[in-house]
């Protein structure tokens, strides 16, 4: 469904990503692992044309994305929950979620608030809170709610578990898996937390200094213990 071939990305003169190939089938979840600075966030932003300058091919459902602006790509079905969550501070949680509905493709219905709460129960008691009043875990849940409300084809989560308490990370993993199972939404999840990534994805890509150094199933990954030492250990 999503096909990325030979994608390069640049920040000004800095060449960050080198010839990335990635495939994502409908309903599939892949993890994108790599150290800090490997280029995970740059990859997700390049897919959305939201910052770095990209070159190469990106196709969604067989149709290429070339010069489309960020909002057009969002409406084509790419949703990003950024690393820093970026909740709109002066809007209520309900209004934050409603903002996500701008990404709904023409004529496509968004989830109702009730449907969102069924998928993300933690959001329920928060709907009238203002964005700046939320804790980190709450922000992450609301950011995911805002990301999925338009029923995107691909949900991109940038280090969702980062900085959250273990209990919240468990709850987050459950929520992500609930969305995968019941809604069949495809996902790209970047992580440094191996356990969390394993629990929420079908297979993985390993990124190092802007290049894909491994791609395969978790079983294949476990057969190569050297990978963790070389590309993930600090």
């Amino acid at each position: 469904m999503l096909e990325v071939s030979h994608l390069d990305a640049f920040y000004g003169q800095s060449h960050i990503l080198h010839a990335i190939d990635l495939r994502l089938a409908a309903g599939e979840s892949v993890a994108l692992l790599g150290r800090n600075g490997a280029g995970k966030s740059t990859f997700l932003k390049t897919l959305l044309n939201a910052g770095p300058r990209g070159s190469g091919q990106i196709a969604l459902d067989g149709r290429p994305l070339s010069t489309e602006a960020t909002h057009v790509r969002a409406r084509r079905g790419l949703a990003l929950v950024p690393e820093d969550r970026r909740i709109f501070p002066k809007l209520t949680v309900a209004q934050n979620i409603e903002m996500g509905c701008h990404a709904a493709a023409d004529g496509k219905a968004c989830y109702s608030l009730d449907e969102i709460i069924a998928l993300l129960p933690m959001v329920g008691p928060l709907v009238d809170r203002l964005g700046y009043q939320l804790s980190g875990g709450q922000q992450q849940m609301v950011a995911i709610a805002r990301g999925i409300v338009s029923r995107p084809k691909v949900l991109m989560l940038d280090e969702p578990a980062e900085g959250l308490a273990p209990v919240i990370v468990d709850e987050l993993g459950d929520a992500i898996n609930r969305i995968r199972r019941s809604e069949g939404m495809a996902m790209i999840i970047t992580e440094q937390n191996l356990d969390f990534a394993r629990e929420t994805s079908d297979r993985l890509y390993l990124l190092d200094v802007g290049e894909v150094v491994f791609c395969g199933s978790w079983a294949d990954f476990d057969d190569r213990p050297d990978l963790v030492d070389r590309y993930l250990a600090l």
Partner: peptide, 22 residues
């Protein structure tokens, strides 16, 4: 007005949620 407020504070995120910022 709400869209304007969102864009005034965080135009990047406004684009990511599908608002035609330009």
């Amino acid at each position: 007005g709400r869209i304007l407020q969102v864009i005034a504070i965080d135009p990047w995120m406004a684009g990511v949620v599908g608002i035609n910022v330009s």
